[in-house]
């Protein structure tokens, strides 16, 4: 279990410093270069930091909607009912900025969503105003239309929106994610909510995107542009084309894509995990791969194995798939 090098004692000073760096990096106060300098200046620092990364990895591995109620349970006394727990979370969320409340820790897992797709499922909806909404795999959305607004809450996953013609009636359409809002100005576009930010790609018309916590960072994406936004910033726009919405037709277009990225994309469409062994993660692949239900993903994997010297290992009744170099 423990290798001699890894379990060597790390000095109290090195642990103190690693804790300070964790804080500074978390709060965005760290200068990346001096951090790298610190880390590489001694094997002990490197070991202390390896622990820090392992800690962050463990925290990232647990979904907040499950981890928070489980870990933040009362230390003694009677168990709370599940309802009381949700009530407490709601109370806590009441303290957050208004925009954020829609994205409670529970809700962002799609808890109360109206329309959902399971992994491998795709679904098309036509909304009351004629807007067409296509839900990609593992997606949850709520649609809230009122006399003066049309709100689409993307709780998790990815959607393609082709707006209807209600804009003239003065009811702006908005797609809200936990990172902020995307407001189309008569258009066809996709919105995908990821862990690190929301990705928007525009194919027709224009879309205004506004991060939740920084309205002055808002910008307008033109047709053929894509960008990613977090709660407080938007990346500079990059070029995109219709290949970014190919999933709506059951295709994934890879153009010189790292194999690890393709594996992660395919993994979205089925339960379990598709991942790469380290030796093939950087391989580049191009092609049109079928995506959708489990059978489509199996066809994609078979295509990969037919065109690359790859070995595809399946474990846990096929749930865990590892792509490795063929020996």
């Amino acid at each position: 279990m423990k290798s001699a090098a890894a379990s060597a004692v790390i000095s109290s000073e090195a642990l103190d410093e690693a804790a300070d760096w964790l804080l500074r990096l978390r709060d965005g106060e760290a200068d990346r270069q001096s951090f790298e300098q610190w880390r590489s200046s001694s094997p002990e620092h490197a070991r202390a930091w390896a622990r820090a990364e392992m800690l962050l990895g463990k925290i990232a591995a647990v979904p907040p909607a499950l981890a928070l109620p489980a870990l933040d349970r009362p230390t003694r006394g009677g168990r709370r009912a599940a309802l009381a727990k949700i009530g407490k979370l709601a109370l806590l969320l009441g303290l957050l900025p208004a925009g954020w409340t829609a994205w409670s820790l529970m809700e962002r897992q799609g808890l109360f969503a109206e329309y959902r797709t399971a992994a491998g499922e795709r679904r098309e909806l036509r909304l009351a105003d004629g807007t067409r909404l296509t839900l990609n795999t593992a997606t949850a959305v709520d649609v809230r239309f009122s006399p003066d607004s049309r709100l689409i809450l993307l709780r998790t996953g990815e959607i393609l929106v082709a707006t209807g013609h209600d804009d003239a009636a003065g009811r702006p359409l908005q797609v809200l994610t936990r990172h902020g809002a995307a407001t189309p100005l008569g258009t066809r576009f996709t919105v995908r909510q990821g862990d690190g930010g929301t990705h928007v790609a525009v194919f027709e018309g224009r879309v205004r995107i506004a991060p939740m916590r920084a309205s002055d960072a808002a910008r307008v994406l033109e047709s053929g542009q894509r960008a990613t936004y977090g709660e407080s910033a938007v990346t500079p726009p990059q070029a995109t084309d219709d290949s970014a919405s190919a999933w709506a037709h059951g295709m994934l277009l890879a153009d010189d894509m790292p194999l690890s990225e393709l594996a992660a994309e395919l993994s979205r469409y089925r339960p379990g995990l598709i991942h790469c062994a380290g030796d093939v993660a950087d391989w580049r692949v191009s092609g049109a791969f079928p995506v959708g239900d489990a059978a489509a993903i199996d066809r994609s994997l078979a295509m990969l194995a037919a065109t690359h010297p790859l070995d595809i290992r399946r474990r846990l009744s096929g749930l865990w798939v590892t792509l490795g170099a063929r020996r």
């Binding site: 979904p63 599940a82 897992q109 799609g110 959902r116």
Partner: peptide, 16 residues
């Protein structure tokens, strides 16, 4: 507490 939290998730988004 974990099982209760799991039970409060709808089936479609519950983990495998």
């Amino acid at each position: 507490a974990y099982l209760e939290a799991l039970a409060s998730l709808p089936e479609a988004v519950a983990p495998s």
